[in-house]
Simulated assay, not measured.
Amino acid sequence: MGAQQVRGVIARAKGEPVRIETIVVPDPGPGEAVVKVQTCGVCHTDLHYREGGINDDFPFLLGHEAAGIVESVGEGVTEVAPGDFVVLNWRAVCGQCRACRRGRPQYCFDTHNARQRMTLTDGTELSPALGIGAFAEKTLVAAGQCTKVDPAASPAAAGLLGCGVMAGIGAAINTGGVGRGDSVAVIGCGGVGAAAVLGARLAGAGRIVAVDIDDRKLETARGLGATHTVNSRSTDAVEGIRELTGGFGADVVIEAVGRPETYEQAFYARDLAGTVVLVGVPTPEMRIDLPLLDFFGRGGSLKSSWYGDCLPSRDFPMLIDLYLQGRLDLDAFVTETIGLDDVEAAFTRMHQGDVLRSVVVL
């Protein structure tokens, strides 16, 4: 077929508005696939890349919460074939590292991306966001980054499993191990926190307390299964959660902000022997200072959830099946659908808290 030229959203320099440029997508090599992108969600991580918050490997090809159709595959690819409807993931497991060999591929320590690079027309190599780069008509990924799901699913909803929604649902179900009748508190109800509320409901939690400083987000969380809400602008979050859990604190508290202050709230808002799950992403300079005796005396577990501890091959098809059965409202996360040209404006709306997800439809 030969290399193809398509349109893609590029971040050229730190803090500069993104722009649409022509990119070159090579034919897939061994173990690679070219995917015709149908939809891609606008995630906070993409903004993070543009602001230089991840690394300095500009220019970036942004976009990573995507669904699409496999167009072509390279040598040795058996897991997907041209024509398959797939959700893209940023953790293609290696099958060889110590985590994979111990039967824990969800923790794979050597996940991989496509070996070849997509470029600008002048040959400048692009860094694809999270190894995906899907604000583009087509993208090149490792075949293991493509997870085949039921094509009956709406691409706009399905693609969101590629990052934020999976991170939130997985934080509750996989990392937090929420069980039937458990009390759960979720601090921070943006896209990931709202998904954690949905995950807790799916797992059968008895009481789900949503905490945020924005009443609009709390209202959305209620619609997704929160039984109670606390606006922590006006109410102390720890006291609010304790009051709603018989004075004890929640069995599982999910921190979906990634700040020392909110982590401390999560730490003290859980019941004795309860679980704290950190799924919010902190920045390198953040520090936490808590009495070590409180770590010891409260028991329980403190966990970090990376991508919701998901195994895409196991979790994506299962969640899509639940979605198609009407048991998992992924459509609720799609606030608006936009074009490739609207990504910069979508960053502004996301920053202002106006949307759960803007989804680019190609």
Rank of each mutant, 00 (worst) to 15 (best):
M1N: 11
I10P: 15
A11F: 13
R12Y: 15
G15F: 13
E16D: 15
V18M: 12
R19F: 14
I20Y: 13
V25C: 03
E32I: 00
V35S: 01
K36R: 14
K36D: 10
V37I: 04
Y49P: 03
R50I: 08
R50P: 08
E51S: 06
G53S: 06
F58A: 08
F60D: 08
L62Y: 09
A66Q: 06
I69M: 02
V70C: 03
V73F: 03
V73G: 04
G76V: 09
G76P: 05
T78H: 13
V80A: 06
L88A: 09
N89S: 12
V93Q: 14
Q106D: 11
M118V: 12
T121P: 13
T121A: 12
G131Y: 09
E137C: 11
Q145Y: 06
V149D: 00
D150S: 01
A153N: 07
S154V: 11
V165C: 06
I169L: 01
I169N: 02
I169Y: 00
N174I: 04
G177L: 10
I187L: 15
C189V: 15
C189L: 15
G190H: 14
G193L: 09
V197D: 02
G199E: 04
A203P: 07
A205F: 12
G206L: 02
D215K: 12
L218K: 10
N231H: 14
N231C: 13
R233P: 08
S234G: 08
A237D: 02
R242Y: 02
L244C: 07
T245W: 00
A250D: 04
I254Q: 01
V257K: 03
Y268H: 03
A269W: 00
R270E: 01
L278I: 13
P282N: 04
T283P: 00
I288D: 01
D289R: 04
D289N: 05
P291V: 01
P291N: 01
L293Y: 10
G299I: 10
S304Q: 07
P317D: 00
L319S: 03
I320F: 02
L322S: 04
Y323R: 06
R327H: 04
F333A: 14
T335S: 15
D341V: 12
F347W: 15
M350W: 15
V355M: 14
V360H: 03
